[in-house]
């Protein structure tokens, strides 16, 4: 009974992926056939073609990688001042605002300034806009690191003779490592998942996986839309698979958002 429920649960979550796989390999799949009538792999073999899905995937990867690296390192370094700020509640509000606010509204608000700065329509501009969200997330996440326990570890290291620099490198970074990895993954995904900011700041000139998916869907090409969807699922699924292999962090801070 319990086992059956578990299998049903996995099936329910994996069924959507199966359908995407089916569509990405379908050649002819007319109504009302429950399965494709003919199969082919052109959506996948055409990945490397210039201007195709492969290029969009690489672009998404580059933007998300840059966003994750910059947001995580900046967030790590600046989060302590956020925890110790007197205006704690106001700062917490500000940091959550980009998430509560629709990314569309954020994009609309920033579009003109980015245009004037020559950043609209470029990958750099898109990455910067997404970076605001990712950075806010990183600060929220790393605030959990600065609890009494972490401070006690740093104090302990200091009285044993560690300079502030040594305490960071030999104590803080190793303790924070699980949290840093989590932050890298999550900020990567914030950028990887984003559509609204790519649309508004990219002005249709930056084609990422999400915008490609929507274009294929509009054009009625479900095969390529499904293939884009599957590529979009790849990094988060890999991250979850890696997480499944590991023990959860035993000494990292709590997760807020």
């Amino acid at each position: 009974m319990r086992r059956a429920a578990g299998i049903a649960l996995w099936a329910a979550f994996l069924a959507p992926v199966a359908l995407l796989l089916g569509w990405s390999f379908a050649w002819r799949w007319p109504w009302p056939a429950p399965l494709p009538e003919r199969w082919q792999a052109s959506a996948w073999t055409g990945l490397a073609a210039t201007g195709g899905l492969g290029a969009a995937a690489l672009r998404s990867l580059g933007i998300a990688g840059a966003v994750a690296l910059v947001a995580t390192s900046l967030g790590f370094v600046t989060s302590r001042s956020a925890v110790e700020a007197r205006s704690g509640v106001a700062l917490r509000w500000l940091l959550h605002l980009p998430f509560a606010l629709s990314p569309v509204v954020l994009g609309v608000g920033l579009e003109y300034s980015f245009l004037r700065a020559g950043l609209a329509g470029h990958m750099v501009g898109v990455a910067l806009a997404q970076g605001i969200l990712a950075y806010a997330y990183a600060v929220i996440l790393f605030c959990g690191l600065w609890n009494a326990r972490t401070r006690a570890y740093l104090d302990g290291a200091a009285t044993l003779g560690a300079t502030p620099r040594q305490a960071w490198i030999r104590v803080l970074l190793p303790i924070a490592r699980p949290l840093v990895v989590l932050c890298l993954v999550q900020t990567f995904l914030i950028s990887w998942f984003d559509y609204a900011l790519v649309l508004l700041i990219g002005e249709g000139r930056v084609a990422t996986l999400t915008t490609s998916l929507y274009q294929f869907l509009l054009a009625g090409d479900l095969r390529l839309a499904a293939a884009s969807g599957l590529i979009l699922l790849l990094p988060p699924v890999i991250a979850l698979a890696v997480r499944a292999q590991r023990r959860p962090p035993t000494f990292a801070g709590e997760w807020d958002l």
């Binding site: 979550f13 559509y195 999400t210 929507y214 979009l232 988060p236 699924v237 979850l240 997480r243 590991r246």
Partner: peptide, 27 residues
Amino acid sequence: GEAVGVTPWFLPIAVPPMVAGLTAVLW
């Protein structure tokens, strides 16, 4: 889920809204 890694409940976290929309259309 917390103690031993990942349960099926984690999976939807891996789904971008764009893909969720596409899957809804296809299903």
